[in-house]
């Protein structure tokens, strides 16, 4: 048993998970949604084992580090975090029909990590700058934030769809019949944005503390830092926009989708298009 086998299995499990949630939502058939939940938890367990094994393998190779240090490892962790945040959320609100987007994002992250030529999946040793306990705190917190925003993106999209295609009085029929009401979706989205905002803030803070101990500056306007600040500002705007009558609802949903666009750019765009301290891709 190797970590790469387990992580390949995870990719397939996320694929089926997405299929179940999608078909369950489209056909309004609860057992399919339940299958989605089961597939999601199964994928998570296999993936957790895979990540653990990769950690152990890095020690066997003599490098010994948490598997959070390069593009591949961070993508795997992102897919893990999206799924666990979604499943805990699902369990708390007792609604199953919201899993399509999170499952799809988890699947895409794994698929991209496994099949893209630009992502190297071999275990690499840590360069001196990454040798810090802040690495774990920084990556985990940032990705919890990003993942909450991924789930929030799905909720915003569903909210807008709900607003566009159904009338509130006619809740239980139509394609979106199993979805919660628009006002519930709005509230869920707000909760996830606030949760993501909390973790993104802690992520930026741990990054700043780390940069201060590695380079002596807690903020240097490096592109990655700046883009995480841009993302932070957009979500701060989402939180405050709820206080304005004209913005609450659709405008806020669009703004949180824009926020997720910034998350994606912070992660992929900065790595591939802009250069700076954080470019995994260049190392």
């Amino acid at each position: 048993m190797t970590s790469s086998l387990l992580l390949s299995l995870t990719t397939f499990a996320f694929f089926f998970c997405t299929l179940f949630y999608l078909s369950g939502t489209i056909f309004r058939y609860q057992p399919l949604l339940k299958a989605g939940t089961i597939a999601g938890w199964t994928a998570l367990i296999v993936q957790t084992a895979g990540i653990g094994l990769r950690w152990a393998e890095s020690y066997r190779m003599g490098y010994g580090h948490v598997p959070l240090a390069d593009m591949y490892e961070s993508l795997v962790f992102a897919s893990w975090a999206i799924m666990i945040i979604y499943l805990v959320f699902e369990w708390r609100i007792r609604q199953r029909a919201l899993g399509v987007f999170p499952a799809l994002f988890s699947f895409l992250a794994m698929a991209y990590a496994s099949f893209s030529k630009g992502v190297d999946s071999t275990i690499q040793p840590l360069v001196p700058a990454l040798k810090s306990n802040w690495l774990i705190a920084h990556v985990v917190t940032c990705f919890l934030g990003y993942s909450a925003f991924a789930v929030s993106f799905g909720l915003s999209a569903l909210y807008l769809a709900r607003k566009t295609y159904t009338v509130e009085t006619d809740n239980q029929s139509g394609l979106l019949g199993l979805l919660p009401t628009a006002s519930q979706l709005e509230w869920f989205n707000y909760q996830l944005v606030l949760f993501g905002f909390l973790w993104l803030s802690v992520g930026i803070i741990t990054g700043a503390v780390w940069a201060n101990s590695a380079w002596g500056t807690y903020w240097s306007w490096d592109p990655k830092e700046t883009w995480s600040l841009i993302t932070w500002l957009i979500y701060a705007a989402v939180l405050h926009a709820r206080n304005l009558k004209g913005w609450k609802g659709e405008k806020t949903a669009w703004l949180s989708m824009l926020g997720f666009g910034c998350v994606l750019f912070t992660y992929f765009g900065v790595n591939f298009l802009l250069s700076g301290l954080h470019s995994y891709a260049k190392q």
Binding site: I230, L233, I234
Partner: peptide, 24 residues
């Protein structure tokens, strides 16, 4: 007003985008 807050958040974000695209 929170409206000003919102405008400032978005302006700061837009300015920062420029800052990462133009050679500093």
């Amino acid at each position: 007003s929170v409206k000003l807050t919102l405008v400032l958040f978005l302006l700061l974000a837009a300015a920062s985008v420029l800052g990462t695209l133009l050679p500093q």
